[in-house]
Amino acid sequence: MKKRINSGRWSGIITGVLLIVGLITGIFSVVPVIDGVDYLAKASASENQVLIGSFFQLLMVVAYVGVPILLYPNLSQHHKGLALGSVAFGITAGVFIIIGVIILLLLLTLSHEFSKVGAENIAYFQTLGRLLREGRDLVNHVATTLAFVLAMFLFNWVFYKSKIVPRWLSVTGLIGSVLSILASLFFMIRVIDLDETYMILNIPIAVQQLVLAIWLILKGFNRAAQHPNK
């Protein structure tokens, strides 16, 4: 029993650490030069910024895939189907992150080629760059976000039903997940842009993710509710 409790405690700590890693890597994966107006001309000159952003974006895969996998043993005791769904969405988010990194590196390559061409080819590069950047935004802010937030919604729902974390924490996670899903959908249909409204809708889930991480690191799961059939 002691070994099982220690194992569950470490699982909570590592999950909490990965949640924080996901937030930190998300911040450092931002590449301002790609989001700027003159990205075709400036990206090649700021290659290190693009490569660093790509590196941190790849680190996000560890967090996005690792969190639902680490939670699976605890969640599956309460609802195996939802736990498995959370893992599936987490893996899907990881795949989309990798696709986003590939597009980012393609934009860097395009910028290098752009610096070599004459004025007569600018329109072609601008069109291709616009398509790649639009694709990257859709992959990062729609596909990836929806996949991971759906994973969070599922495991917060199991949290709510099982009470292995306080219900106020799971309820805020459910509300934050819904708001983040709405932000991605509104961006996809162009009701909003990547602006203040988009950020405001995503703040609740980010705050809940941080609080949940700290809770799991400091207190872990509710042991009384962790093994309902024991």
Rank of each mutant, 00 (worst) to 15 (best):
residue 90 G to R: 11
residue 154 L to M: 15
residue 169 L to K: 05
residue 134 E to N: 13
residue 99 I to A: 14
residue 103 I to P: 06
residue 126 Q to Y: 07
residue 170 S to Y: 04
residue 134 E to M: 09
residue 122 I to C: 03
residue 143 A to V: 09
residue 138 L to N: 12
residue 128 L to V: 15
residue 99 I to K: 00
residue 126 Q to C: 06
residue 163 K to G: 00
residue 122 I to V: 15
residue 117 V to K: 01
residue 137 D to C: 07
residue 111 S to I: 02
residue 124 Y to R: 08
residue 131 L to H: 12
residue 137 D to Q: 14
residue 94 G to L: 11
residue 166 P to N: 07
residue 107 L to D: 08
residue 129 G to A: 10
residue 140 N to A: 14
residue 182 L to S: 14
residue 132 L to H: 09
residue 143 A to R: 04
residue 120 E to D: 14
residue 132 L to C: 04
residue 97 I to T: 14
residue 158 V to C: 04
residue 147 A to E: 01
residue 133 R to N: 14
residue 152 M to I: 12
residue 100 G to C: 12
residue 109 T to A: 13
residue 163 K to L: 01
residue 133 R to L: 14
residue 157 W to S: 13
residue 128 L to I: 11
residue 99 I to L: 14
residue 168 W to S: 07
residue 102 I to M: 13
residue 123 A to V: 09
residue 117 V to S: 02
residue 169 L to Y: 03
residue 154 L to C: 09
residue 145 T to Q: 15
residue 164 I to F: 09
residue 120 E to N: 06
residue 172 T to H: 01
residue 180 S to T: 15
residue 116 K to W: 04
residue 104 L to I: 08
residue 143 A to L: 15
residue 129 G to K: 13
residue 96 F to I: 10
residue 173 G to R: 03
residue 130 R to K: 12
residue 108 L to G: 07
residue 133 R to V: 04
residue 173 G to K: 03
residue 133 R to W: 06
residue 179 L to E: 08
residue 165 V to F: 06
residue 92 T to V: 14
residue 162 S to Y: 02
residue 159 F to N: 09
residue 91 I to M: 14
residue 155 F to T: 12
residue 129 G to E: 07
residue 180 S to C: 15
residue 94 G to C: 11
residue 174 L to M: 15
residue 173 G to L: 02
residue 169 L to A: 04
residue 121 N to Y: 10
residue 104 L to T: 15
residue 147 A to N: 05
residue 175 I to M: 10
residue 92 T to K: 08
residue 112 H to I: 01
residue 173 G to E: 02
residue 91 I to A: 13
residue 105 L to W: 10
residue 125 F to H: 01
residue 178 V to E: 02
residue 91 I to Q: 12
residue 177 S to K: 08
residue 162 S to H: 07
residue 119 A to F: 00
residue 175 I to G: 11
residue 148 F to R: 11
residue 156 N to Y: 11
residue 165 V to Q: 08
residue 139 V to M: 13
residue 165 V to L: 11
residue 98 I to Y: 07
residue 115 S to W: 00
residue 129 G to L: 07
residue 96 F to E: 09
residue 154 L to F: 12
residue 170 S to L: 02
residue 162 S to N: 05
residue 155 F to L: 09
residue 115 S to M: 01
residue 175 I to N: 06
residue 147 A to Q: 03
residue 123 A to G: 03
residue 114 F to I: 00
residue 156 N to S: 06
residue 178 V to P: 02
residue 142 V to D: 10
residue 143 A to D: 11
residue 127 T to S: 11
residue 155 F to D: 10
residue 155 F to V: 09
residue 98 I to F: 14
residue 179 L to N: 08
residue 181 I to L: 05
residue 167 R to F: 01
residue 122 I to L: 07
residue 180 S to A: 15
residue 112 H to L: 04
residue 157 W to R: 15
residue 139 V to G: 08
residue 160 Y to C: 08
